[in-house]
């Protein structure tokens, strides 16, 4: 996933789009090193060091990665399976809507 996520981050750099992670690794310090090594620039919630942490438990996540795509109004628009082309297409649909809302709002 990392290469695709990195390319999304650069493709949508100045546009209303963010990747937010929920990370379930065990060791925070090891993870911080990996984040630097892999150029992971997006922010992640810490799931208390476990795949059975509070966030993934509440969200009933049993497979990794699990993805949700949420629009600018906070509405869930897509869920897994959300891979490759499907994700790219969904962003082409949703990001312009967010930009349109921004323009309308700032008038």
């Amino acid at each position: 996933m990392y290469p695709h996520e990195r390319s999304l981050v650069s493709e949508y750099a100045s546009r209303p789009f963010a990747i937010i992670g929920v990370n379930s690794d065990k060791d925070r310090e090891v993870l911080k090193e990996r984040i630097i090594e892999e150029s992971i620039t997006w922010r992640s919630f810490w799931n208390d060091g476990s795949t059975r942490g509070p966030i993934s438990t509440q969200w009933n996540v049993s497979g990794w990665p699990t993805l949700y795509l949420i629009d600018h109004e906070g509405v869930i628009r897509y869920k897994d399976p959300l891979r490759g082309d499907l994700l790219d297409e969904a962003l082409k649909e949703l990001v312009p809507l967010a930009e349109k809302a921004l323009k309308t709002g700032s008038r």
């Binding site: 795949t51 993934s56 699990t66 949703l94």
Partner: peptide, 10 residues
């Protein structure tokens, strides 16, 4: 206000 890709990852 932003489109969010919420990613449960490890």
């Amino acid at each position: 206000g932003k489109v969010i890709l919420l990613d449960f990852w490890g």
